[in-house]
Design a binder for these strands. Structure first.
Lengths: 124, 124
DNA sequence: AAATCATTTCGTAATTTTGCGAAATATTAA
DNA sequence: TTAATATTTCGCAAAATTACGAAATGATTT
């Protein structure tokens, strides 16, 4: 009851992948690459994305680290592609996470003791 | 061709939601809340999650700001629930993003000029 | 060998995130 | 009114993220 828990692999993986998806540049790259069978030169990307070359390189590195993309070398160019296997795994992971709802079940302890509820506004 | 682009609403929204999902504590909370019709006291959560009360409060605030949860007041308790409407919107958004692949189509410019490709290892 | 080219790594700075304890807030109980 | 309770806000520190230009890397062309 009062034991702190270790997060499951699933929770940690979703957090890790979400972190990779937490920047517009990286979402854009993934959106583009996931739609193509082929790959993109970093040089092609830098022309359409409003960041410098070294910054783009960092974002690509992060996506590579997260396993979502992979590179292919053809010097002096480097092409990046979606890592289909991991992309499909991410797809599976998010689909489960987002759809595994049981809105009928009530599982929270003190759930029934709620009276006089008033909805909070969602301000910040 | 060389014009820098503004990111679409879709790309920005996915990045924003992903940021909210980019921490295990927040993923855990959402996983739990999305599975219940009811809500959770912050006090219930702090017993199972390995962070202090003020830190938990901050995570809840972020999820509230992202629109994924909402609070209900029953002083001195505050219950948090999933914001079903926005949760379903997020579901829709990610489903589209993750499944809108066209692995057959080749759309990258210099795509055909690749020879001698060798796969990069996914190290960091 | 020297120049060129695409990309990455390095060094650095600004900003954001994460975490905690102490203090503040707001309601209920004594 | 005072004490107790649950949660949030504040102040702060450590760490991570984001961004850029300059320098380094690695391969090709002259």
């Amino acid at each position: 009851m009062s034991d702190k828990l270790e997060f499951t692999q699933e929770v940690q993986q979703i957090a890790r992948i979400s972190k990779a998806l937490s920047h517009p540049v990286r979402v854009y790259i993934l959106q583009k690459l996931s739609k193509m069978n082929s790959c993109c030169y970093s040089g092609d990307l830098v022309e359409e994305i409003p960041v410098g070359r070294s910054t783009l390189s960092q974002h690509l590195k992060e996506l590579k680290y997260a396993g979502l993309i992979q590179g292919e070398i053809n010097p002096p160019f480097i092409k990046y592609c979606i890592n289909r296997k991991n992309w499909d795994e991410a797809k599976e992971l998010f689909t489960t996470f987002l759809n595994d709802n049981n809105p009928e079940e009530i599982s929270c302890d003190n759930a029934e003791s709620m009276i006089n509820k008033s909805t909070l506004s969602g301000t910040h």
